[in-house]
Design a protein around this nucleic acid. Structure first.
Lengths: 257, 257
DNA sequence: CGCAGACTTGAAGATTATCAACCACCGTGG
DNA sequence: CCACGGTGGTTGATAATCTTCAAGTCTGCG
């Protein structure tokens, strides 16, 4: 009964409602105890909305926020002092961004690529809530570990794979990640990225990405034209470049007892 | 008084003693409440010791362990199916390794480079202890975030910096990390890595690393010979390549109330 | 219509890899 | 004591990959 009242309370008060729905939706599927719902309250979640190509958090910012993407494409990157930039990842629905090492300015930036809806909360508040919600602690830890795993894949890409394999790998990764929430069909997916953005993510020039995409198209593997990535022969592509989506994790989060 | 007894209990029982000392040593400097010390007990820490070049955890392993390096150099890497490998990081004293996304095989391997002493514990046990030790939760989260920050730097290195800058960057990074625990002097530090290992970390060939090191030496910037990295003109080097150690974080962990 | 941003293509140049030696060091066993 | 093998380091010549520069084209949009 108390649980029911509490749930109602949280559902109706503030933005926590949306976050709660998010946590309870498949494939996350959290089941909260009353204490845990209480623990979520002080998070003081802001459910924000940004237009495309807006900087949400800039490297050097001291205030530490934690973000969970609810919908849309984001882009986390690092600016170099020579004007170049390295895109670290394109966070999608369900991805957690912004967990940085203790006090100090954040080391990377977050921007929207498309219109996005995003949950923002204070990093310290989340830390404090850990003691009261083991589920939240597990969720955040798993999510951070998954993000880390993705970055490791990108490092492997940049360090030890040539342009063709590297590009195909990123396209297959985005496909696999999007399909978790049903945002990718059998044929392919809508991709809002420019060739320059792909280049900054892959550690190539936009020109070379262009040629590489043409290669992939001419080999009847993938075609990326006018905002849509179409897989022409996914099995062959996966086999050719040795893609293994294991690194993305299963996203099965245990609910509290 | 109870605290005193508990402390004694933990200190004398099992390997937790060493971990406790580790947590309490500068620059970590944890101050534990009695409850927190209790929470540490079920971690069942194993303080292990490995000879050089031993595989500690292999990619594909299902059992999930969490490692904290106590001394020595380790090496976390990912093997590719074409025989290449990408070294993700060289974890040093204080570094946390092995937090992977929920159930499923680990995606990277951990090996010793030198003789190392290392704490091993079950990932699930750590997760469970979070509820009882907010400090531990903060420590692990901060540590994972820091590791992530380091990997991001390596990605930036591989993606957007040339061989010279990249190599110098890694050497300066290792220097900064070692100096946290006083393992690097003004002149430089002992480095057990081979040029092949550097190459696998930097995404280059060993031959090119060799030439790059020669370049750095001939420009009177750094010299890496017979296991010692000697900085010939650190200020100039830092300035030339635009090194900013911000990404390593401050490693200031708040103690519990 | 004209403009701006993204995409495309060619030619030339820089960076990095590959191939093939050779050297230096070190522990081992005769 | 020295020959021996193995690992890691060094160097040169050549080739592949990727970048840079320069000049288009295409498309959406005021």
């Amino acid at each position: 009964m108390i649980l029911r009242i509490l749930q109602k309370w949280i559902m109706t008060s503030t933005q926590n409602q949306t976050l709660l729905q998010f946590f309870q939706s498949p494939p996350i599927g959290a089941i909260f105890t009353s204490e845990e719902m209480e623990a979520l309250r002080p998070l003081n979640v802001a459910a924000k909305h940004y237009p495309p190509h807006t900087v949400i958090s800039h490297q050097g910012d001291v205030e530490q926020r934690l973000f969970i993407i609810n919908s849309g494409w984001a882009c986390s990157y690092r600016d170099l002092n020579n004007g170049d930039r390295q895109i670290i990842d394109f966070p999608l629905k369900g991805d957690v961004v912004g967990v940085v090492a203790s006090p100090g300015p954040s080391t990377d930036s977050l921007a929207s690529t498309t219109e996005i809806s995003i949950f923002e909360m204070s990093r310290t508040a989340v830390g404090k809530a850990f003691g009261r919600s083991p589920w939240l602690a597990q969720f955040i830890l798993s999510a951070v570990a998954r993000q880390s795993s993705i970055v490791i894949e990108h490092l492997t890409n940049a360090g030890r794979r040539n342009a063709l394999v590297r590009t195909a790998h990123l396209l297959l990764e985005m496909d696999a990640r999007l399909s978790t929430f049903g945002e990718s069909t059998q044929q392919g997916f809508d991709c809002p990225l420019t060739q320059q953005e792909l280049a900054d993510a892959l550690g190539l020039t936009a020109i070379h990405v262009n040629r590489t995409l043409r290669d992939l198209r001419e080999h009847n593997l993938v075609s990326f034209r006018s905002g849509f990535v179409e897989f022409l022969d996914k099995p062959r592509l996966i086999n050719m470049i040795g893609f293994d989506k294991e690194f993305l994790g299963f996203r099965v989060f245990s609910s509290s007892p």
